[in-house]
Design a protein around this nucleic acid. Structure first.
Lengths: 185, 185
DNA sequence: CGGGAAACTTGTCACTGGCAAGATTGGCAC
DNA sequence: GTGCCAATCTTGCCAGTGACAAGTTTCCCG
């Protein structure tokens, strides 16, 4: 921790991103307020402007960070397709704030270079897992990749949105393990 | 059209919902402004309050309307599972504003009785299609239902979010037809 | 050690959501 | 018909927000 009273915060950009993730986790992305973030971190209401330009700029940075966290999670899950899918679910649940922003167009600048690069890294990680996996229909790799991504993404999105019936249970990763295998026989 | 100058609009609730769908289609749910809706419809800035209470109330009504539109679309698609899935995609693309609100928790009151009822109607419609379909693994009906819903929902969500690579093409329904069958052999 | 740039603050403006109080109108009891 | 009540809509207001402008403090490099 840097000195708490310094005029220069020293790590404000990182602190604001962390505060944003926390605030979104509490009340969702729509309720996010730059002034609230500034208060949480202990700086003036205009400080965030200098680092992110505007609100969309901050969410753009958060989305980029999220895509890199996702790529890392997928790489950590290894080459097993089921485990990679579970990793995707785990990422979305653990980093819910990032995940919600990443796939909410209109909240941030989708064509920002940093976001584009980070998104490319995560899709490459996903693609690598599927390419290596035996037992998957390789006749139409693109359709297979798309289907896999879709099941996993759809499942966790429904989970997070609260649209799923109670019978599914309370453990998203466990539920995902019963759903994902239906894609491969 | 009712008289345009009447003190009583006559159909304000419906007009506001339509304006909301239009506005969200233009700029997304986050940018929605009650005052802007009032201006579009030609009433004062406080008129919406009387019909919906607050902003969440309006979005709650929009979500309920969306779930009913979805149930209708699924019923119209018949009992073929592939066509029902394509119908789901068609609904999301055509009624994008409704769809985005329906699955965005935090924007509206998920436990509202009208929403709950409408959501139950649409899940029932989805369940009916899957139950009737031959060639689907019926050993674990719940997992099958969940997987089907997940692929379709995930695909169209990714599509709408702009996360999919350009190779997927420009016709979401056609792309869905190549993805959905991978669930059944 | 001096000067310029980066980091942060204070001040301000237009806009938003929500509330309160008043004006207008439709419709029902009688 | 007529009177009255409730629903509908308006005007006025307040606190909070995002964005911008201008000023202040601090860092760092030459």
């Amino acid at each position: 921790m840097v000195s708490t009273k310094a005029y220069h915060h020293g790590d404000l950009r990182r602190a604001l991103l962390a505060a944003a993730a926390e605030a979104i986790g509490e009340s969702g992305p729509a309720a996010l307020s730059l002034r609230d973030l500034a208060r949480r971190v202990g700086v003036s209401h205009a400080a965030p402007t200098h680092h992110f330009g505007d609100k969309a700029g901050l969410l753009t940075a958060l989305a980029a960070q999220g895509f890199d966290l996702l790529a890392e999670e997928l790489r950590r899950s290894g080459t097993d397709l089921l485990e990679a899918g579970v990793g995707y679910v785990r990422f979305a649940v653990r980093h819910r704030a990032h995940f919600e922003v990443m796939f909410a167009p209109g909240l941030y600048r989708r064509d920002d270079p940093e976001v584009t690069a980070a998104r490319a890294r995560s899709t490459a990680a996903l693609q690598a897992v599927i390419a290596d996996h035996p037992g998957v229909d390789q006749s139409d790799p693109q359709a297979t990749r798309l289907a896999t991504w879709s099941v996993v993404h759809g499942f966790v999105t429904l989970w997070l949105s609260g649209a799923l019936p109670a019978e599914v249970g309370t453990d998203p990763e466990a539920a995902a393990r019963t759903v994902i295998p239906l894609l491969f026989h």
